[in-house]
Design a protein around this nucleic acid. Structure first.
Lengths: 114, 114
DNA sequence: TTTTTATATTCTTTTTTAGGAATATAGTCT
DNA sequence: AGACTATATTCCTAAAAAAGAATATAAAAA
């Protein structure tokens, strides 16, 4: 029950859902996500941690950058199922379409140097 | 997005999830749910409203009683999917097994007269 | 019509959550 | 080592959520 509730809670915040939808497109580091969502860096880090605890994302360190990516859901069947459904769910949402359109133009090298 | 978030939020509370699991067993009125969960009547009513707004439950008036039941999920594909998954999800949770075991012994006629 | 009862709603309080500012940490580069 | 930078964590505040007490509503019965 705990794991299930943690997953539902993780997916009940718009910014966290947007992160999931973006990571479907490609792995991203914190500063890229920050730029895409227009929120503070700590906010992104904290939301990523919540997603990680829910078994939805994992990360790989790359120098100073930390690149987050979706998991294969092997940590829990709930996460696996939701990640699968979220591949097609919400694809028609304007907010999501807008985000996915902007992603290719967010260049890590530019965004993070500030 | 709104609908999806509302659904996730509805399912991120233990009492609401328990209500869903109980309704899988049989339709129940507010007082029966109250008795099963050991919470106040207003709390049950409010949680049922949240589940209703998420498209997960619906009700049928029966005299003074209001009998709640699971929907067929036709209101949203998200709700339909989650309701389907929740048929088997959480079945092994002790809390849920305990609840489902108690349900048959909760007699509406006894419970509500107080 | 008055009373009773099951449920809904309002109100208030406590807890939880989300965000940003400030700070800490850990790699990287010189 | 010292400076720099991307990320994590802490701290604080504001908003949201959850619960119960009190109250309102609506259906049934007398």
């Amino acid at each position: 029950m705990k794991n299930f509730l943690r997953l539902m809670k993780a997916l009940s915040d718009p910014n966290r859902v947007k992160i999931i939808k973006m990571l479907q497109h490609k792995p991203m580091c914190v500063c890229e996500i920050r730029e895409a969502l227009h929120v503070s860096q700590p906010s992104v880090s904290k939301n990523l941690k919540i997603l990680e605890d829910a078994g939805l994302v994992d990360f790989r360190k790359d120098g100073l950058w930390v690149e987050y990516h979706l998991t294969d859901g092997s940590s829990s069947p709930y996460a696996a199922s939701l990640l699968g459904n979220l591949r097609h769910w919400l694809e028609d949402e304007d907010e999501v379409k807008e985000l996915k359109k902007r992603i290719p133009f967010i260049r890590r090298e530019e965004v993070c140097k500030k």
